[in-house]
Amino acid sequence: MQILIIRHGQSEADLLKVHEGRADFPLTELGRRQAKLMAERVKENFPPEIIWASTLKRAKETATILADALYCPVKFEDRLMEYNNGILAGLTYEEGKKYPIPKTMHERRVKNGESSIEFRMRVESIFSEILYTSTYNRIAIVAHGGVINNLMRAFYKMPVTTEFLFKSGDTAIHLVEITEKERIVHFSNDLAHLQHLQ
Protein backbone atom coordinates (compact mmCIF):
# COMPACT_ATOMS: atom_id res chain seq x y z
CA MET A 1 0.00 0.00 0.00
CA GLN A 2 1.22 3.48 -0.87
CA ILE A 3 0.77 6.25 1.69
CA LEU A 4 0.75 9.91 0.73
CA ILE A 5 1.54 12.05 3.76
CA ILE A 6 0.68 15.72 3.20
CA ARG A 7 1.12 18.78 5.38
CA HIS A 8 -1.52 21.52 5.45
CA GLY A 9 -1.03 24.88 3.70
CA GLN A 10 0.03 28.14 5.27
CA SER A 11 -2.19 29.10 8.22
CA GLU A 12 -2.98 32.45 9.79
CA ALA A 13 -0.78 31.53 12.75
CA ASP A 14 2.24 31.69 10.41
CA LEU A 15 1.49 35.36 9.77
CA LEU A 16 0.67 36.15 13.41
CA LYS A 17 3.93 34.54 14.62
CA VAL A 18 2.25 32.59 17.39
CA HIS A 19 2.65 29.11 18.85
CA GLU A 20 0.23 27.02 16.84
CA GLY A 21 0.00 23.38 17.93
CA ARG A 22 -3.58 22.97 19.12
CA ALA A 23 -4.50 26.60 18.40
CA ASP A 24 -7.10 26.28 15.66
CA PHE A 25 -6.32 28.74 12.85
CA PRO A 26 -7.68 28.51 9.27
CA LEU A 27 -5.63 28.67 6.09
CA THR A 28 -4.57 31.99 4.60
CA GLU A 29 -5.43 32.82 0.99
CA LEU A 30 -1.90 31.72 0.09
CA GLY A 31 -2.50 28.48 1.99
CA ARG A 32 -5.61 27.82 -0.07
CA ARG A 33 -3.70 28.41 -3.31
CA GLN A 34 -0.97 26.07 -2.11
CA ALA A 35 -3.58 23.40 -1.31
CA LYS A 36 -5.21 23.73 -4.74
CA LEU A 37 -1.86 23.34 -6.49
CA MET A 38 -1.04 20.33 -4.33
CA ALA A 39 -4.46 18.81 -5.11
CA GLU A 40 -3.91 19.24 -8.86
CA ARG A 41 -0.55 17.49 -8.66
CA VAL A 42 -1.87 14.64 -6.53
CA LYS A 43 -4.88 14.16 -8.82
CA GLU A 44 -2.65 13.97 -11.90
CA ASN A 45 0.14 11.80 -10.52
CA PHE A 46 -0.88 9.70 -7.49
CA PRO A 47 -4.57 10.00 -6.54
CA PRO A 48 -5.51 8.21 -3.30
CA GLU A 49 -8.67 6.20 -2.82
CA ILE A 50 -9.36 7.66 0.62
CA ILE A 51 -8.05 10.55 2.73
CA TRP A 52 -7.53 10.62 6.50
CA ALA A 53 -7.15 14.05 8.04
CA SER A 54 -6.74 16.01 11.25
CA THR A 55 -9.80 17.84 12.54
CA LEU A 56 -7.95 21.14 13.07
CA LYS A 57 -9.10 23.84 10.61
CA ARG A 58 -5.86 24.20 8.64
CA ALA A 59 -5.60 20.47 7.92
CA LYS A 60 -9.35 19.96 7.54
CA GLU A 61 -9.52 22.71 4.91
CA THR A 62 -6.47 21.35 3.06
CA ALA A 63 -7.96 17.84 3.06
CA THR A 64 -11.34 19.13 1.87
CA ILE A 65 -9.71 20.94 -1.07
CA LEU A 66 -7.91 17.70 -1.97
CA ALA A 67 -11.04 15.57 -1.55
CA ASP A 68 -13.13 17.94 -3.70
CA ALA A 69 -10.55 17.81 -6.49
CA LEU A 70 -10.46 14.01 -6.42
CA TYR A 71 -14.13 13.28 -5.60
CA CYS A 72 -12.60 11.17 -2.86
CA PRO A 73 -13.99 10.35 0.61
CA VAL A 74 -12.27 11.87 3.64
CA LYS A 75 -12.28 10.66 7.25
CA PHE A 76 -11.52 13.24 9.92
CA GLU A 77 -9.66 11.92 12.95
CA ASP A 78 -8.87 13.74 16.20
CA ARG A 79 -5.78 11.60 16.80
CA LEU A 80 -4.14 13.25 13.78
CA MET A 81 -4.26 16.68 15.46
CA GLU A 82 -0.96 18.47 16.03
CA TYR A 83 1.10 18.17 19.21
CA ASN A 84 -0.84 19.34 22.23
CA ASN A 85 1.26 22.31 23.30
CA GLY A 86 -1.10 23.14 26.16
CA ILE A 87 -0.88 26.65 27.55
CA LEU A 88 1.37 27.80 24.67
CA ALA A 89 -1.33 27.35 22.02
CA GLY A 90 -2.10 30.72 20.42
CA LEU A 91 0.41 32.71 22.46
CA THR A 92 2.93 34.95 20.72
CA TYR A 93 6.52 33.78 20.92
CA GLU A 94 7.19 36.62 23.36
CA GLU A 95 4.27 35.64 25.60
CA GLY A 96 5.36 32.02 25.41
CA LYS A 97 8.66 32.85 27.10
CA LYS A 98 6.75 32.96 30.39
CA TYR A 99 6.23 29.21 30.04
CA PRO A 100 9.62 27.70 29.21
CA ILE A 101 9.60 24.39 27.38
CA PRO A 102 11.26 21.65 29.46
CA LYS A 103 14.68 20.64 28.15
CA THR A 104 13.65 17.00 28.09
CA MET A 105 10.16 16.63 26.62
CA HIS A 106 10.05 12.84 26.50
CA GLU A 107 8.31 12.55 29.84
CA ARG A 108 7.71 16.17 30.89
CA ARG A 109 5.17 18.40 29.21
CA VAL A 110 4.18 22.03 28.87
CA LYS A 111 1.32 22.90 31.25
CA ASN A 112 -1.94 21.31 30.01
CA GLY A 113 -0.07 19.67 27.11
CA GLU A 114 1.27 16.24 26.23
CA SER A 115 4.78 14.79 26.41
CA SER A 116 6.76 13.69 23.36
CA ILE A 117 6.17 10.06 24.31
CA GLU A 118 2.42 10.61 24.57
CA PHE A 119 2.45 12.41 21.21
CA ARG A 120 4.39 9.62 19.49
CA MET A 121 2.14 6.93 20.97
CA ARG A 122 -0.98 8.78 19.86
CA VAL A 123 0.33 9.10 16.31
CA GLU A 124 1.51 5.46 16.23
CA SER A 125 -1.91 4.33 17.45
CA ILE A 126 -3.84 5.98 14.62
CA PHE A 127 -1.16 5.13 12.03
CA SER A 128 -1.36 1.42 12.95
CA GLU A 129 -5.14 1.55 12.82
CA ILE A 130 -5.10 3.19 9.38
CA LEU A 131 -2.58 0.68 8.02
CA TYR A 132 -4.25 -2.44 9.34
CA THR A 133 -7.84 -1.54 8.50
CA SER A 134 -7.21 -0.16 5.01
CA THR A 135 -7.95 -2.30 1.98
CA TYR A 136 -6.83 0.36 -0.48
CA ASN A 137 -3.82 0.48 -2.81
CA ARG A 138 -3.11 4.14 -2.03
CA ILE A 139 -4.27 6.34 0.83
CA ALA A 140 -3.52 9.92 1.90
CA ILE A 141 -3.01 11.40 5.37
CA VAL A 142 -3.32 15.18 5.70
CA ALA A 143 -1.86 16.46 8.95
CA HIS A 144 0.72 18.71 10.61
CA GLY A 145 4.49 19.00 10.73
CA GLY A 146 4.84 17.38 14.15
CA VAL A 147 2.42 14.59 13.28
CA ILE A 148 4.21 13.94 9.99
CA ASN A 149 7.55 13.86 11.78
CA ASN A 150 6.20 11.13 14.06
CA LEU A 151 4.53 9.27 11.18
CA MET A 152 7.86 9.13 9.36
CA ARG A 153 9.69 8.04 12.51
CA ALA A 154 7.11 5.29 12.97
CA PHE A 155 7.44 4.28 9.31
CA TYR A 156 11.22 3.98 9.73
CA LYS A 157 10.71 2.19 13.09
CA MET A 158 12.87 4.75 14.88
CA PRO A 159 12.95 4.91 18.68
CA VAL A 160 10.92 7.57 20.48
CA THR A 161 14.11 9.35 21.57
CA THR A 162 15.54 9.65 18.05
CA GLU A 163 17.04 13.00 17.07
CA PHE A 164 16.08 12.71 13.38
CA LEU A 165 13.70 15.42 12.19
CA PHE A 166 11.65 15.08 9.01
CA LYS A 167 10.88 18.58 7.72
CA SER A 168 7.67 19.40 5.89
CA GLY A 169 7.03 22.68 4.08
CA ASP A 170 3.53 24.03 3.46
CA THR A 171 1.58 21.35 1.51
CA ALA A 172 4.71 19.17 1.34
CA ILE A 173 4.09 15.69 -0.05
CA HIS A 174 5.82 12.53 1.18
CA LEU A 175 5.19 9.22 -0.61
CA VAL A 176 6.05 5.97 1.13
CA GLU A 177 5.01 2.39 0.53
CA ILE A 178 4.67 -0.74 2.62
CA THR A 179 4.82 -4.12 0.87
CA GLU A 180 4.96 -7.64 2.28
CA LYS A 181 8.76 -7.57 1.98
CA GLU A 182 9.91 -3.99 2.51
CA ARG A 183 9.25 -0.35 3.29
CA ILE A 184 9.97 2.05 0.43
CA VAL A 185 10.45 5.82 0.46
CA HIS A 186 9.59 7.18 -2.99
CA PHE A 187 10.19 10.83 -2.02
CA SER A 188 9.97 13.17 0.97
CA ASN A 189 9.11 16.87 1.52
CA ASP A 190 8.33 17.37 -2.17
CA LEU A 191 7.19 20.91 -3.01
CA ALA A 192 7.42 20.84 -6.81
CA HIS A 193 3.77 21.93 -7.15
CA LEU A 194 4.66 25.30 -5.58
CA GLN A 195 7.47 26.03 -8.04
CA HIS A 196 5.57 28.68 -10.00
CA LEU A 197 3.45 30.05 -7.15
CA GLN A 198 3.51 33.84 -7.01
Score class of each variant (00 low, 15 high):
Gln2Asn: 13
Leu4His: 02
Ile6Leu: 01
His8Val: 07
His8Pro: 04
Gln10Arg: 15
Gln10Lys: 15
Glu12Pro: 06
Ala13Glu: 10
Ala13Thr: 12
Asp14Phe: 08
Glu20Asn: 11
Arg22Val: 08
Ala23Ile: 01
Pro26Ser: 00
Thr28Pro: 02
Arg32Met: 10
Val42Glu: 11
Lys43Ile: 09
Lys43Val: 05
Asn45Gly: 13
Asn45Trp: 10
Phe46Thr: 10
Pro47His: 12
Glu49Gln: 14
Glu49Phe: 07
Ser54Val: 03
Lys57Phe: 05
Arg58Ile: 11
Arg58Thr: 10
Thr62Ser: 15
Leu66Trp: 02
Ala67Pro: 05
Ala67His: 10
Ala69Cys: 14
Leu70Thr: 02
Pro73Thr: 01
Arg79Lys: 15
Leu80Glu: 03
Tyr83Asp: 06
Gly86Arg: 04
Gly86Ser: 00
Ile87Pro: 03
Ile87Asn: 05
Thr92Pro: 01
Tyr93Cys: 11
Glu94His: 04
Glu95Leu: 03
Gly96Glu: 12
Tyr99Thr: 02
Ile101Gly: 02
Ile101Glu: 05
Lys103His: 13
Lys103Trp: 02
Glu107Lys: 04
Glu107Phe: 02
Glu107Tyr: 01
Arg109Val: 05
Arg109Ser: 01
Lys111Cys: 05
Asn112Val: 05
Asn112Arg: 09
Asn112Cys: 07
Glu114Ile: 12
Glu114Gly: 14
Glu114Asp: 04
Ser116His: 13
Ser116Gly: 14
Ser116Tyr: 12
Ser116Val: 08
Ile117Ser: 15
Phe119Ser: 09
Met121Phe: 13
Arg122Ser: 04
Val123Tyr: 06
Ser125Pro: 06
Phe127Val: 10
Glu129Arg: 03
Ile130Ala: 00
Thr133Val: 13
Thr133Cys: 13
Thr133Arg: 14
Thr133Pro: 12
Thr133His: 14
Thr135Glu: 15
Tyr136Phe: 10
Asn137Pro: 01
Asn137Cys: 09
Gly145Val: 06
Ile148Arg: 08
Asn149Ile: 12
Leu151Pro: 00
Met152Leu: 09
Met152Val: 00
Phe155Ala: 04
Tyr156Lys: 11
Met158Trp: 07
Met158Glu: 11
Pro159His: 04
Val160Thr: 11
Thr162Trp: 10
Leu165Pro: 00
Lys167Ile: 07
Ser168Gln: 02
Thr171Arg: 11
Ala172Trp: 07
Val176Met: 05
Glu177Arg: 02
Thr179Ala: 08
Asp190Leu: 08
Asp190Phe: 09
Ala192Phe: 14
His193Arg: 12
Gln195Lys: 15
His196Val: 10
